[in-house]
């Protein structure tokens, strides 16, 4: 992996090895190694057997590559009484993430569209509250939400957690969609109005097809965000429905028996794999997603 960034390889003929470039690329490469190291250590550790881990050092590549830790992490690692590995948490996370992503994006996109093109009185007040709400510590709102969910019979159930993710994803997604829809030329909207298209007609026939990139950005944001969630998973679901992050933590923290660091690291990579794949596949869109989420338009 380090080879991919091997310095100023293809030099511009004249002054590629100037002092400035050596310092510049040298610094960048050293920092890059620091950032890559944990991922490298994770992978290397997960491919070693326990005896080798006890003898060697964490940075050395495995002498004998074994995939046993991965198999064990996926299918046999124990949390409490369950010994069916991380696969349970993986599927729980899938079952949590898919509907949460879909529901939150549907609601936020329609809402952002209403805020951008169909302003009504009072809309901005609620929108401002919503954006400020994004900065309120979750801890202030988690217990009232427990009560609300209990009242409507969803506490500890999957739909409850989906609702929670939809609620807390709403500020950033609504902002994202509102800003995007605002940037679409108003003439288009007006022309459609003249042609007699209504609220939903314009949304489905004009806005939706024009804004696929922003939907992808929203999906990236939500998939990584919800997959990586720990707090809501631990509060609003029951142990058998815990998402992967919670189960991972429980597996690593379980005190029974000898610590198997290779299994722990294999489990850690497995949990990080989904957001990592999303990240590496989406590339620039990911950057755009977080920038859109972070810097207000």
């Amino acid at each position: 992996m380090v080879e991919a960034v091997a310095g100023p390889a293809g030099p511009r003929p004249v002054r590629a090895l100037s002092r400035r470039n050596i310092i510049l690329y040298g610094t960048l490469i050293v920092i890059a190694i620091y950032y890559i190291l944990p991922l490298y250590v994770m992978v290397v550790t997960s491919l070693k057997g326990m005896p080798e881990i006890r003898l060697g050092n964490i940075f050395s590549p495995p002498v004998e590559v074994t995939f046993q830790p991965w198999v064990k992490a996926w299918a046999q690692a124990c949390t409490g009484l369950n010994c069916d590995g991380l696969s349970r948490g993986f599927w729980n996370s899938v079952v949590i993430t898919v509907p949460s992503v879909v529901l939150s994006i549907v609601i936020a996109s329609v809402n952002g569209y209403a805020l951008a093109n169909w302003r009504f009185r009072g809309a901005n007040i609620f929108f401002t509250i919503l954006i400020f709400g994004a900065f309120i510590p979750y801890q202030v709102m988690i217990y009232p939400l427990v009560i609300i969910l209990r009242e409507i019979g969803l506490y500890g159930k999957l739909p409850g957690l989906v609702l929670v993710h939809t609620i807390f994803g709403m500020p950033i997604l609504t902002l994202l969609f509102r800003n995007y829809f605002t940037s679409i030329p108003e003439e288009l909207f007006k022309a459609a109005r003249v042609d007699g298209a209504g609220f939903w007609g314009i949304y489905f026939k004009i806005m939706l097809p024009m804004s696929l990139p922003i939907f992808v950005v929203a999906m990236i944001l939500q998939i990584t965000g919800i997959w990586n969630d720990f707090l809501f998973g631990v509060i609003y679901t029951k142990p058998e429905a815990y998402p992967m992050t919670v189960q991972l933590n429980n597996i690593v923290k379980s005190v029974q028996g000898v610590q198997e660091y290779n299994v722990n690291m294999a489990a850690t990579i497995l949990t990080g794999l989904v957001p990592l794949i999303v990240y590496f596949v989406s590339g620039k869109l990911f950057v755009r997603g977080i920038a859109a989420g972070a810097v207000k338009g």
Partner: peptide, 8 residues
């Protein structure tokens, strides 16, 4: 690393 969870 930003794509990874705090747990990981």
């Amino acid at each position: 690393p930003f794509a990874l969870s705090f747990i990981v």
